[in-house]
Design a protein around this nucleic acid. Sequence first.
DNA 1: CTTACACCTGTGCCTAAGGCATGGGTCAAG
DNA 2: CTTGACCCATGCCTTAGGCACAGGTGTAAG
Lengths: 144, 144
Amino acid sequence: MRVTELANAMDTTPDTVRYYTRIGLIVPIKSPNNGYKTYGKKTQQRLKFILSARQLDFSVEEIKGILSESDKGNTACPLVREIVEHRLAETEKQFQATLILRKRLKKAMDDWQSKPNKAPTGDMICHLIEGESEGDAHQRGNNG
Amino acid sequence: MRVTELANAMDTTPDTVRYYTRIGLIVPIKSPNNGYKTYGKKTQQRLKFILSARQLDFSVEEIKGILSESDKGNTACPLVREIVEHRLAETEKQFQATLILRKRLKKAMDDWQSKPNKAPTGDMICHLIEGESEGDAHQRGNNG
DNA sequence: CTTACACCTGTGCCTAAGGCATGGGTCAAG
DNA sequence: CTTGACCCATGCCTTAGGCACAGGTGTAAG
């Protein structure tokens, strides 16, 4: 199988396959006559795993860790459980953040409904936004 | 005001201020004796606008467009309304995606509760994930 | 055999919004 | 002058691929 063929079979893009190849997640055999990368059944299995993990929003780095463990013959399951737990917590945060953003956007649209458009003054760029930031603490970078 | 001072006053980081400076969103005066960047009141106002817009998840590129319009003396309000509308739609999508991911993660944790850890076989890397991808179509990159 | 042409391949550069490390400059106290 | 604390500008690094480019491959026609 060559890159596009594999990509189609796994319902992903050739660029994605190339990317995973480039960073060593999957290892093809170089065809000796034309230098094209050739992927076998085992690699397809591996790619399937990678894509499934990506579906759960595992980062590529995390997947690399899992595969590394598995390649040494060890169970990757505990690691997988840990990651999924962490990912769920992260998703919960993301969820809340999106909620807040949505509320904020809706409020903005609502508030602006009645306001006219104004040309910028020396003190204001767009009164829609600048009249808006009361009672809402900003957040410095407290990420995870 | 120098970079850190401005950053503290606006409750953001010096790196952020430097970034906006670097890409020309805000323009400081170079202090002639030490080469330090110095920011005035007008710039602080501008930065406030930028940060408020970022709170609404406007991209920096979008903000650049708004400021460019405003700098020419034109109303940026229609553009702002348009962006906020678009952003709201985008957020809605994001919201749904996060919901799906959360459901998927929760289901995974649930399903795995009863399953043991297994060493990888020749055909499987981690049975938790590989047994999981039934009845769930993958998605090729159909983004917006 | 050669030509034509569609499709395919590998490589390298690009992204968003800053974060971080480095090497040096500045300011006040002693 | 020297120490030390803090501050500054600059440049590289990050994700997960996307995209453009230049050239190779394969098949049909001549």
